[in-house]
Simulated assay, not measured.
Amino acid sequence: MCLQDLDEIVDSFLREVRQIDGYLPPTSVVTDDDLGATALASLELLIRLVGGLPIPERLEGISTDVGQRRARQNVPLESVLRGVRMDFRILWPAMLRRVPPEVLPGFTEEAVRIWEAVEYHVIRVHAGYLDESAVMAQERQHERGRLVGRLLSSNGEDTQLLSQTARALGVRSDSAFQVALAPADNARRFRAAAEDANALRSLHEREDLLLLIAELPRTQDLQSPRWLHDVPCIVAPIARTLAEVPRAYAIAREILAAFESGIDETVTLRGAWGRIAARRMGDVGDALAREVLDNVSANEGKRLAETLWVYFETGSVTTSAELLYCHRNTVINRLSRFHQLTGFDPNKPVDAAMIQMALQHRQNVQHDR
């Protein structure tokens, strides 16, 4: 009898479900036709399950289909399940009205069969929704990766690409961004630190690297996130807009290339510029290294180079002596000795820059060998 009056029962369901916030237009994309067709198929399935009637092939996957469709339509899961469980409130009174009084007591004892049928439907709707949500998440992740890849290989001037990437990442294209890289050896630690900082969404996999593109707070004083300085990674100069991210990424890759043996601390452009410059000098670097260092013997050169690096880093004879565990006069004597052997004075900024380039180039060459 319920199957014969199915249209009437569906109308009752539609009147009820329209009361669920966020389920129907204008706040939802689910149309009346869509909702009506789904309700018709779902209620017929439930009636057949309760009555032990044959299930047509067209109804076999309806529960899963409902969950998948509502997920695609971005209907909140809570609203979907409330709507599905409402089937019991619709079917139970509909059946009671069609049961003769003399068999009503026996029929009420079978109410559990209606609830079991509804739960059967709910479980499969729920599973379909979750499965489709997972598929959608993978699709979004794939699309994010595709757009990020296009952005990084661009010159940052394609406004449409910038807009699409910003939407996919959930950021503003005119925000500032911190770009950072972690090679494979440091990826696990980098990911754990990003998770602790609630920055997992800003991570992207690029070949064998983990790439961070983190939107920074809109403040006048732009600073790198503090957590980045606690893990081994390459921290690029801050990109002032999304359009500058490709340039920041290219700089980060070049910094990383200068540390072929790996990194064990946070590396910035400030700390890596010498290595990068020396790598770019080529034959000029060979000539500079010979001009500055050829008059220093190998045995003496190692001790002098160590002192020079510490002195250039600290700018202080006293601090250098403390770090080298020697007397400050020893540092002064070594700097003078280098000046005497080479003619380049470590205390003169121009000479100091040339000495650093020569030392860095010689170090790079020795490492490559």
Results as ranks from 00 to 15, higher is better:
6 L>P: 02
8 E>N: 11
9 I>N: 09
13 F>E: 05
17 V>S: 12
18 R>V: 01
37 A>F: 00
48 R>F: 02
48 R>Q: 08
55 I>V: 15
58 R>Q: 09
58 R>P: 00
63 S>P: 01
64 T>D: 08
66 V>M: 11
73 Q>C: 04
90 I>G: 02
91 L>G: 07
92 W>Q: 11
103 V>Y: 02
104 L>A: 12
108 T>I: 11
114 I>K: 07
119 E>M: 14
123 I>W: 08
123 I>A: 15
123 I>V: 14
126 H>G: 04
129 Y>T: 06
135 V>E: 10
148 V>Q: 01
150 R>S: 10
152 L>Y: 03
153 S>V: 03
153 S>D: 12
159 T>G: 01
161 L>K: 06
161 L>F: 10
165 T>Y: 08
168 A>F: 10
177 F>D: 03
183 P>L: 04
185 D>P: 01
185 D>W: 02
185 D>L: 11
190 F>Y: 13
199 A>P: 04
207 E>F: 02
213 I>F: 05
214 A>C: 09
219 T>Y: 06
219 T>L: 14
221 D>F: 10
221 D>K: 10
224 S>E: 14
227 W>N: 06
234 I>E: 01
235 V>L: 09
236 A>I: 04
239 A>S: 15
240 R>A: 10
241 T>A: 09
247 R>I: 12
247 R>S: 13
254 E>M: 13
256 L>R: 11
257 A>F: 07
268 T>E: 12
268 T>M: 03
272 A>M: 07
281 M>P: 01
282 G>M: 04
286 D>V: 05
290 R>A: 14
293 L>A: 07
299 N>G: 02
299 N>W: 04
306 E>S: 10
310 V>S: 07
315 G>D: 07
317 V>H: 03
322 E>A: 13
323 L>N: 08
323 L>F: 05
324 L>D: 07
333 N>C: 00
334 R>V: 00
336 S>D: 15
340 Q>H: 10
341 L>C: 03
347 N>T: 15
349 P>D: 12
350 V>H: 09
351 D>Y: 05
353 A>W: 10
357 M>F: 13
358 A>C: 04
368 D>M: 12
369 R>F: 12
